[in-house]
Amino acid sequence: MSSRRNCLVNLSLKEASTTNAGLWLDKFIRNQAEDDKKSRRLLVDDVAGIKEPDEYSLWFKRWEGTLLNYGAQCRVAEVLGRMAVGLGEESVLETSVALHHTYGVPYIPGSAIKGMAASFARQYLGDDWQVDNPAYKTVFGDTDNAGYIIFFDALPLPGTGHSYPDVITVHHKDYYKKGNLPPADWDSPNPVPFLSATGKYLVAVAGPAAWTNAVFEILQYAFLELGVGAKTSSGYGRLKLKPAPIVTDKDQEKADQLIGQIKALKNPEVAGRIHAFYEQWKSIEINAEQKRRIAEAIIAKVKEAGREKQSREKSWYKDLLASLVD
């Protein structure tokens, strides 16, 4: 028997291409019978096929700007292989996944990042970073006081956060479930579908500068050695934290000057002059972070002038968009 309402029984993912992936995962399983493995596998395949909403890139830029205005330090971490976060949370399946409640993209909760960093500190950083010592309490807090460092949720850079169908194969189901039957070679494997994720994620922490620097040093190794989320013993959840960009006053001055010119451009002038700013962006020799700022300013001006639709298929505009994904 279908678990959907009658009016939704035949709804296909193609007809709801703009839906929220988390909503589809929670509400649109075809059949909730415990032994209906096909419906569960199809549900995982459906959710993995849902694309990132078009509005997400705009929201992400506001989110990043809010973090920077708050004084947070931000670094990008790239998943090496696959990541399974939120696998044990409540779900219509036997497994779950952490998806953003509004945009349905995979993300890493700040609590998971903090827990991983705290575990790494206790295991590998010696006596100075044990639970009762000042350094540990300063960063992570204790039962009486919060730590000085805020760990924000890590959201995927636009165009990079993808979900994929994956599978856990339990070979001795009755042994694990009942406990009174021994595992045997004739037990039937029981494939359990789940969703894993890839992508580049914006990792942000806020607090006193010296301590946030220390936290990023911890995260650099914790992401590689421990991993985040579930199935880390099988290689899931490893990320590589990119180094902090080196910003020089000269580079920032060049970028600020060009961005000022772009912002001063009047909307009716955009069609005839914006490509010249793209050429300057392409040839300017400054660090990657400042170059990214210029690309964002050009794209913002195109949108402000209402010329995004006309520019979307242009090679120069695609080049700018691609630079923001790297």
Rank of each mutant, 00 (worst) to 15 (best):
R4I: 03
C7A: 01
L8P: 04
V9K: 11
T18D: 15
T19Y: 00
N20S: 09
L23N: 12
L23K: 03
W24R: 05
D45P: 07
D54S: 15
R62G: 15
L68K: 15
N69E: 13
N69L: 10
A72V: 01
R82D: 03
E89D: 12
S91M: 07
V97T: 14
T102R: 13
Y103M: 00
Y103H: 14
P106S: 09
I113F: 07
G115D: 09
M116E: 05
Q123H: 06
Y124A: 13
Y124Q: 09
D127Q: 06
D128H: 03
D128T: 00
Q130G: 08
D132I: 02
D132W: 06
N133R: 07
Y136D: 10
D144C: 10
Y148H: 01
Y148D: 13
F151R: 04
F151D: 12
F152G: 06
P158I: 02
Y164Q: 09
I168L: 15
T169R: 05
H172F: 06
D174Q: 11
D174G: 00
D174K: 14
K177W: 00
K178Q: 15
K178G: 04
A184I: 08
W186L: 08
S188K: 15
V192S: 09
P193L: 14
P193Y: 13
F194I: 05
G199K: 08
L202Y: 00
G207W: 09
A210T: 01
F216A: 04
F216E: 10
L219Q: 04
Q220M: 12
F223E: 10
F223D: 11
G227S: 09
G229C: 04
A230P: 02
K231G: 05
L239R: 05
L239P: 02
K240F: 15
A244Y: 03
P245G: 12
I246C: 01
T248R: 04
K250M: 14
D251M: 05
Q252N: 15
E253M: 06
E253F: 11
Q257V: 01
L258E: 12
L265E: 08
N267Q: 10
P268H: 01
E269C: 05
V270M: 09
I274C: 04
A276K: 07
K282H: 14
S283H: 13
R293P: 06
A295L: 03
I298M: 10
I299W: 00
E304T: 06
E304Q: 13
G306E: 05
K314E: 14
Y317R: 07
D319G: 00
L321V: 08
A322Y: 00
S323H: 11
